[in-house]
Design a protein around this nucleic acid. Sequence first.
DNA 1: GTCTATAGGAAGATAGAC
DNA 2: GTCTATCTTCCTATAGAC
Lengths: 195, 195
Amino acid sequence: MESSEQKIIDAAIRLFAKKGFTATSIRDIANESGLASSALYYYVNNKNKLLRMIMEKYLQQIIDVANERISTCTTPSQKLQELVHLHVELHGKERFVALVVDTEYRSLEGEDRERIRALRKEYEAYWHNVLQEGVKDSSFQIQEVKLATYALLEMCTGVVHWFTPNKEQSIEQVGNRFAEMALNLVRYTPKKTDM
Amino acid sequence: MESSEQKIIDAAIRLFAKKGFTATSIRDIANESGLASSALYYYVNNKNKLLRMIMEKYLQQIIDVANERISTCTTPSQKLQELVHLHVELHGKERFVALVVDTEYRSLEGEDRERIRALRKEYEAYWHNVLQEGVKDSSFQIQEVKLATYALLEMCTGVVHWFTPNKEQSIEQVGNRFAEMALNLVRYTPKKTDM
DNA sequence: GTCTATAGGAAGATAGAC
DNA sequence: GTCTATCTTCCTATAGAC
């Protein structure tokens, strides 16, 4: 049994992803979730808070999982592969919410915007630190860590724009290929102690 | 002396990039370009045609330049570097219009959408073909050309999301680094005849 | 070409009944 | 919790004067 609140959130994610935040009206969300438009205000302060709530939950989730996955790894190359797999698979499996998080930042204002910005920075720091670590122990050869961070993040985020679930290729397979490409990009060379 | 039509287009690009297509009203564009809102309809059928016009012009431009640049190259690695430079620099220099082209596809409908889709496919084909060529002559080692195409395109397009003009790093320098990373990603190994 | 004025509809949000 | 009804504001687009 799904709660009305969950129905509203799910409907909002679908519609925000398809039409965009601004193009989606409160009435649209109400229709999609089978309620009157006024009923939404029982659960949500306003449309902007609904967007913030969706983005915040998703970002907190990916941060938590990233943290957990990395903590079990010993080498930078393992960590990078974990990050790529997580990011790619989440963007392939939860495409709607990922699309909303990636494209609707500009629809936020003031405090909401700052909060989401902070979470993004926090997540990006994981990637940056892993690359830095790999440069320090010479398993990666990167000219500019910041540029490589952006390049890798954008490459993996982009999955959301072209991947559609199909039987020819699973998102896990895409994750494998992307992890390989990521290691190539940072010029990974295994250390003797890794083998 | 700038024409009213050009003022309208420039204002629309700025506003679409900043607030998004749907969140930008005809009145916003009119204010930004110093005209009454009704004056816009003298030049433009409606808001949707304005978006199509902007996207079409930009895409046709990048296709034409890509075609021209590639035609003077002899090896796949040269071609790939040219494509990366062009894409990165255009996304760094014309950030507003690039952002509109990259994020407002979903605001198009019907024939407009199909037209822009066709142009995107046409442009992506250049990248795909260059990678395929490199695989054939063994200068690139790629597992799946299609995935590598998407990875590279998204990585280069992403520049628009984080680059801001500054004196520490020019967009040309970013282009150089990205070209290096692209060659790493495809496992480029120079052939004897290249040297 | 550009204006003022306005038609006609849809938006976000609230009031108050049940 | 959920509804119907409604307020106010903003939207796209057009009419018609200059």
